[in-house]
Design a protein around this nucleic acid. Structure first.
Length: 850
RNA sequence: GCCGGUGUGGCGAAAUGGCAGACGCAACGGACUUAAAAUCCGUUGAUGGGAAACCAUCGUGUCGGUUCGAGUCCGACCACCGGCACCA
């Protein structure tokens, strides 16, 4: 079936793709290269690089990639040196799972998937600089991932300078307690089915994000990254970024800063103390009991003999629950009394100490003072176990004090009485500090980053163990590749698969290699830096290249100028990458403190049934089928025409046909088919002047497309180009200047078509030199945008009554007179008094009457 | 529960506080064609009136407010989508 296409895209699209590749058309020269032009400003536009899955490219990928590609192409035409690279986030579970099932090495699967993705991307005509392609699994790449890990291992966060410094500047006697990469025995999220631990961020509703398997808590020795030291800077330095407010908020909430106080409660019997964190130290007089997390280390110490059986039973019950069950049971409070009492430091009251699973070991100190009168959870618990409730805050207005958690006036609180909440907080903190039983304190929800995984297909840690101590592998021994293995299965014990490679593990008589590997996030934390200088064998990126592409300049804010990807990375990748970037910045390796200046999230594309695309629903659209039917330009154009980039929107094949017809109309503007079925230049084409109306449309289109590109409003830019084409389709004479302008403006959107039309026109007419994609971006003349006459609206009390034509330079008085003389206006104001007349030049006249 | 986002024709959508519905889809009518497809030209928010070009009224989730004028700004509410969720 060789049905004739309305324009010959199957022939020319692949031809241009080959041509661009062969000529290196989109290669961006680095400083120091002969082709480098230092006078050009830089523009770094980046996609979130994909995990090359076995499913191939999705139309969702194509949306974001098309947006960045349009901008990259436009910026080149506007005289920028554009860095627009692509690579592969190719470590990851699916390849390893597949290897376990089939015995095929993940490297083989990964290479196959990468080849497929690359071919698909090239088949859409994206203008990536393919000479910069990288893969996180390439030893030449992960050498530097490991090197960055060593920088983390070899440095600490100095609170005095508020930045990372080499560990040598640390004056304490245990450097291992402050390293940014450290080892800890701690309860982790163990997933039996995957045979690995997971980060908090990788768990959704108590199950693994990948595969949805159950996850349990289990103490294990793990590598951790001290991201919590950067909590405040990760919040503060969001301010200067051009990111969606919602993403900034998501990050702030995830970091979860709260201000309060640390308070020390002495035990009534015995000499140990319990420390609690509270955001409401002003309610200390209302603390009528305390609660420890069931896992709290003090529990065995304070529990009385009489209560030890019930406490142990409760602990056992809680620890057997998965996180899912524990949060599922949130509705009913449970807990047991330890038999111990503590002393409230402000009033000497003996208050009972309980354990309960509503207190989490992972937040604050794992212990709380309970103020049931002014905390919902404490109140509920006190109700369940008949504990006393004492009011210490008087709410404003009529609100009832019981369970009131807002600000009010302190009562029943001795020296705090009468103070409003914020003042009471300050007073009590000063009081606690004077007596050494407490202090002001900022607390964060953010946990340190669990950085090791028990997998094969990841970066091995450049770490050696000797006599129970860890030390860094010498930099000269990087990259450290995984051993060759046939058996990738998890051991089931928590011991990583690499442990099975006995020869590899043995480094020397005394030393063994670390057998954990890094999580998938590691490689994606810094890939944007490697793109600056991907081949550099001696540094993660050459200093000149890093400075040029990442620094600010008068035309760019610095860092990656535009970063486009999905919201799913709002708190994972984007937080981790910022953290690594800041460490490298602090250590003097980078020129900016933030990696991504402008961030845009593309919306999800739904199936044509309005539901999320999924195999089970059968509503998945493959880019390949769209390309074979309508061509790559139609795919690109439709994805941009669907609606605003950031919005969720459903797919429609009818919509694809719509833009396809538009492209065919563009083609027929210039060519028609002769008797032999060949496309020849249309006889309507001529080197002719624009009519006034044509000039207006041409200049309005240049203006609109130029401005809409800055705002990433591609849908309206395309709509304007459709207006342009509609205007010239009916014209008996089509000025070649219109074609030149249109093909230039459209070429970032539909590059194959424009390139083809440009050279075909060039064969018949003068003024079509070079390539469409190499033309300078056109400018426009404001003066040509407005007709000599404009239509204005005539309103009475804001209501439209008539429309009239006036000269574009008509004075306010003339417009007003015209309005008052208008029969329809006269009819509407008949018998009423004109209060005033508002004239908006070129827009409307509004007559206000009473 | 808390936080965020979105509500406009049959559908995707557009609109610096100034003529609501640009552009596209779908639908309908016409031209071309033996016919169909493709293409080209036109109509298309709702209701009522008119033979007709046209006229009137209503209309951006709901209710209120600010304003000469509100899809747009402010307040309250409703619905849907997303995120977080015993964080002391």
């Amino acid at each position: 079936m060789s049905q004739r296409k309305p324009f010959p895209f199957p022939e020319f699209e692949s031809r241009w793709q080959k041509e661009w590749l062969a000529s290196g058309a989109f290669r961006a020269p680095n400083p120091g290269e002969p082709a480098f032009d230092a006078a050009k400003p830089k523009y770094y536009v980046l996609d979130m690089f994909p995990y090359p899955s076995g499913d191939g490219l999705h139309v969702g990928h194509v949306e974001g990639y098309t947006a960045t590609d349009i901008l990259a192409r436009a910026r080149r035409m506007q005289g920028f040196n554009v860095l627009h690279p692509m690579g592969w986030d190719a470590f990851g579970l699916p390849a390893e799972q597949f290897a376990i099932k089939t015995g095929q090495h993940p490297r083989v699967t990964t290479a196959r998937n990468v080849a497929r993705f690359r071919a698909q991307l090239q088949g859409i005509g994206f203008s990536y600089d393919w000479s910069r392609e990288i893969s996180t699994t390439d030893p030449g790449y992960f050498k530097w991932t490991q090197w960055i890990f060593l920088q983390l291992y070899g440095s600490w966060f100095n609170p005095a300078t508020n930045r990372a410094e080499p560990i040598a500047t640390y004056a304490g006697n245990d450097p291992n307690s402050v390293r940014l990469a450290y080892v800890a025995e701690m309860p982790v999220n163990w997933c039996q089915a995957l045979g690995t631990v997971l980060a908090n961020e990788e768990i959704v509703e108590g199950r693994s994000e990948v595969g949805g398997f159950p996850v349990e808590r289990r103490p294990m020795r793990q590598w951790m990254l001290r991201i919590t030291d950067y909590a405040q800077r990760l919040i503060d330095e969001l301010d200067g970024l051009d990111w969606p407010e919602s993403i900034k908020l998501l990050q702030r909430n995830w970091i979860g800063r709260s201000e309060g106080a640390l308070v020390t409660f002495a035990m009534a019997d015995g000499d140990c103390v319990i420390e609690v964190f509270t955001t409401r130290p002003d309610t200390l007089f209302g603390a009528t009991y305390m609660v420890l997390a069931p896992e709290h280390p003090l529990v065995p110490q304070i529990t009385t003999a009489e209560k030890s059986a019930s406490v142990a039973a409760y602990q056992a019950k809680v620890s057997s629950k998965s996180d899912l069950e524990r949060t599922d049971l949130a509705k009913e409070k449970s807990g047991v009394f330890t038999g111990a009492f503590a002393v409230n430091p402000v009033n000497g009251a003996r208050i009972p100490v309980w354990i309960a699973d509503y207190v989490l070991m992972g937040y604050g100190t794992g212990a709380i003072m309970a103020v049931p009168a002014h905390d919902e959870r404490d109140f509920e618990f006190a109700q369940t176990f008949a504990l006393p409730v004492v009011q210490v805050v008087q709410p404003p207005g009529e609100a009832h004090w019981q369970g009131f958690t807002g600000d009010g006036i302190a009562v029943n609180s001795d020296f705090l009485d009468g103070l409003p909440t914020p003042e009471a907080k300050r007073r009590i903190i000063a009081w606690l500090e004077e007596r050494g039983v407490g202090a002001g304190r900022v607390n964060y929800k953010l946990r340190d980053w669990l950085f090791s995984r028990q997998r094969y297909w990841g970066e091995p840690f450049p770490i050696l163990w000797e006599n129970g101590f860890h030390r860094a592998l010498d930099e000269a021994e990087l990259p450290l590749a995984q051993p060759e293995m046939d058996d990738f299965k998890p051991t089931g014990t928590g011991e990583p698969p690499l442990a099975k490679a006995v020869d590899w593990v043995r480094y020397s008589d005394g030393a063994r290699r670390e057998t954990n590997t890094m999580p998938q996030w590691a490689g994606s934390c810094w890939y944007y830096l490697r793109f600056c200088d991907p081949e550099n064998p001696g540094r993660f990126a050459g200093q000149d290249a890093e400075r040029y592409w990442m620094s600010g300049n008068p035309k760019s804010t610095g860092g990656v100028d535009l970063y486009v990807g999905g919201t799913e990375h709002a708190v994972l990748h984007l937080l981790y990458a910022r953290f690594w970037h800041k460490v490298l910045f602090d250590l003097g390796y980078l020129s900016t403190p933030e990696p991504f200046q402008r961030l845009v999230n593309q919306g999800i594309i739904l199936g044509d049934d309005g539901h999320k695309m999924s195999k089970s629903r059968g509503n998945v659209v493959s880019p390949d089928e769209v390309i074979s039917e309508y061509g790559a330009d139609s795919l690109r154009l439709y994805e941009m025409f669907m609606g605003p980039l950031e919005q969720m929107k459903p797919w429609s094949m009818k919509g694809v046909e719509g833009v396809f017809r538009f492209l065919a109309r563009v083609w027929r503007l210039a060519f028609e088919e002769n008797q032999e079925g060949q496309w020849i230049p249309s006889p309507a084409l001529a080197e002719a002047e624009f009519t006034g109306q044509q000039a207006r449309v041409v200049h309005a289109t240049i203006k609109k497309v130029t401005e809409d590109l800055e705002a990433l409003s591609f849908n309206t830019a395309i709509a304007q180009m459709m207006i342009f084409v509609n205007e010239f389709t009916g014209a008996p004479v089509r000025p070649l200047g219109a074609l030149r302008t249109l093909l230039t403006l459209l070429s970032p959107f539909a590059p194959h078509l424009c390139e083809e039309m440009w050279v075909r026109l060039g064969a018949a007419f003068a003024g079509f030199d070079g390539l469409a994609s190499r033309q300078p971006w056109p400018g426009y003349d404001e003066a040509l945008l407005i007709d000599n006459e404009v239509e204005i609206a005539l309103q009475v009390n804001g209501k439209l009554r008539d429309r009239v034509m006036v000269a574009k330079n008509a004075t306010q008085a003339e417009c007003e007179a015209l309005a008052l003389a208008n029969p329809k206006v006269r009819e509407a104001i008949e018998g009423k008094t004109v209060v005033k007349v508002i004239v908006v030049p070129g827009k409307l006249v509004n007559v206000v009457v009473k």
